[in-house]
Design a binder for these strands. Structure first.
Lengths: 341, 341
DNA sequence: TTGAAAGCGCTAACAC
DNA sequence: GTGTTAGCGCTTTCAA
């Protein structure tokens, strides 16, 4: 690699002048500047961000931890972060945690060793040990994405309770009064919130909450699939289902397939989170869609703001999801979307 | 951050000794070692990879460029790279190129500024300017993923011609003799190869290649959707379709939906590349599935090998895709998979 | 078995 | 308007 010293030699100036030409950090006589720029060009000089970071103690790099980059929603968040990072001249380091608190901590430590300026945690494990340490004000700037925690932290998520209530309301408005929720692991805060939306919708409609209509403590697609089979069989089955995440929806679809059941004919379905390419496939599932790309963008912007102003007050941003009205909720075909989009 | 010098002070040794204790780079007397380790622990020392990289001129970081992280197949590749990188103690920088040669070059330059040890290009733009420069032996180690180029480079891809031929053979074996291919942009090498597989299958079956059965020069899902409508209308329509990528398949599904057509009833369909969660949805599309995670793993391993041995001979790895036999190809239900899986 | 010190490439304080 | 130089935190050579 060609260094500043080489350029300085070629242009007959000091390294200081070269540095100032490159960074525009102090006035340089026109003729000198041109000479330096010519030398820079001729040599194909590229700055060494390592040395620069060393000296300035800022790497202009952010670390992003996601639980699973193969899930489209995380790909979208990554995309959003990457876009804003690039615009601000930041590089992005990425690590995958497999939703495991241990690996997540590991990744954070590695990021710190690399002296990233800040960290974005897309879907922090809810059981993250050493979480308190992150709250220490002298710790590295941190933004939480998707799964939120303390309001003392910068964080970006989607609205959950309201939208979930709204799609359950929609089912109720369609005449369903026996609605089950496949809620997933209720110790996860976001899933807990989605359940809360369901609860509120039933409450508002004076429908009693029945524990045999709440499928919780299921984590994987496979578990959901297995758990749903007995529930969907027989005449006692619920007439409508609400699902709380992509994987859960996938598991439910698996169970429906196993039983050769159709939606909305045999059971109505609405889903929080959408499966990719969902618009092309049957069943066409009425869904709440999180604006994942924008969430990533906001997270990066929040981090940049914090880097510029370390003492800024912590901010929590909740973005509105979109409602996509399709057929699985059992509305008459061609009916206008009750969601106003 | 606590520095080595602090540890050296605390343990009453020189920084050299601290360094050697941490890295195990020279024998240290047991008692000294214990004292240093105690001090390390007490202070919660974490090494500074920046300073280390500065001195050793290796960052133990790799750069990955993908064209679009929201596409599951790239998420999978990223996952594979991340896993192997972590196992080898490497950090991963990620940039998204939007399949644009300009942004791709930009990302590569930024990576070089950050002095990454090597770069993985997942789906290099086929029009990448300055490509020759990468072939220069003094350039930074590089591995191509998915879209391959010169055999003088390390690269990892999936087999294409053979598998494509095989699924077209499968259609032919099912009695279809009027098969169209939705080939996408044939200036993209991987898509060109897939087309070649189609051509070979027709050739082997003595079916003439008709230019009105080749839909090329379509790039986006939207373009495919629009282009397919006239082709699918009327009685002259092909009886079977082969699609060359996820986006193309999505566009075809859109067109089928627009025309209220079903597969395999109105037209049979097989797809190269699979849409995520495809197993849960109708139509259930017979597909060739690339082992994207393993491709990512191999790419990282190839890069590590090159870093250890810069003079190793360039290697091209082609992984076998899986065949997933479903209903869209029009085989009788319950027929055994002709693919032997 | 250990320590002193040079130096990786840059930025910025200070001097002229 | 420009140059000299200390120093960021580490690794590693040389010397003891």
């Amino acid at each position: 690699m060609v260094r500043m010293a080489d350029i300085a030699n070629a242009a007959n100036v000091s390294v200081a002048t070269v540095s100032h030409v490159i960074n525009g950090t102090r006035p340089v006589k026109e003729s000198t500047r041109l000479r330096v720029e010519a030398a820079l060009d001729a040599a194909g000089y590229r700055r060494d961000r390592l040395a620069r970071a060393m000296r300035r103690s800022t790497t202009e790099t952010v670390g992003v931890v996601v639980s699973d980059p193969t899930q489209p929603v995380f790909g979208q968040m990554i995309q959003g972060v990457a876009k804003e990072a690039r615009a601000a001249g930041y590089a992005m380091m990425l690590a995958s945690s497999a939703d495991d608190g241990q690996q997540e901590l590991e990744a954070i430590k590695t990021f710190k060793e690399h002296r990233v300026d800040g960290i974005i945690l897309a879907e922090v494990s809810h059981d993250l040990a050493g979480f308190d340490e992150m709250l220490r004000p002298d710790s590295i700037p941190l933004v939480l994405l998707d799964r939120l925690a303390s309001r003392r932290l910068d964080q970006v998520g989607a609205e959950t309770v309201g939208p979930m209530k709204r799609i359950v309301d929609h089912l109720i408005g369609n005449g369903y009064d026996d609605i089950a929720i496949v809620a997933g692991d209720l110790s996860v805060p976001t899933l807990q919130e989605r359940f809360e939306g369901y609860r509120q919708a039933l409450d508002a409609a004076d429908i009693p909450l029945r524990s045999d209509r709440v499928v919780d403590d299921v984590r994987t697609e496979r578990e959901v699939r297995a758990a749903m089979r007995p529930i969907l069989q027989g005449n006692e089955r619920p007439r409508a289902l609400v699902t709380s995440s992509t994987n859960i929806t996938a598991g439910v679809l698996g169970a429906l397939h196993d039983l050769d059941m159709r939606t909305p004919r045999d059971v109505a379905l609405v889903s929080f989170d959408e499966l990719p390419y969902a618009e092309h496939f049957a069943p066409r599932i009425t869904s709440v869609v999180q604006p994942a790309v924008q969430m990533g963008e906001h997270a990066m912007r929040l981090l940049l703001r914090r880097l510029r102003n370390p003492d800024a007050q912590a901010r929590t941003i909740r973005l509105k999801p979109r409602f996509v009205h399709r057929q699985s909720c059992g509305c008459p075909a061609g009916a206008p979307s009750p969601f106003g989009d």
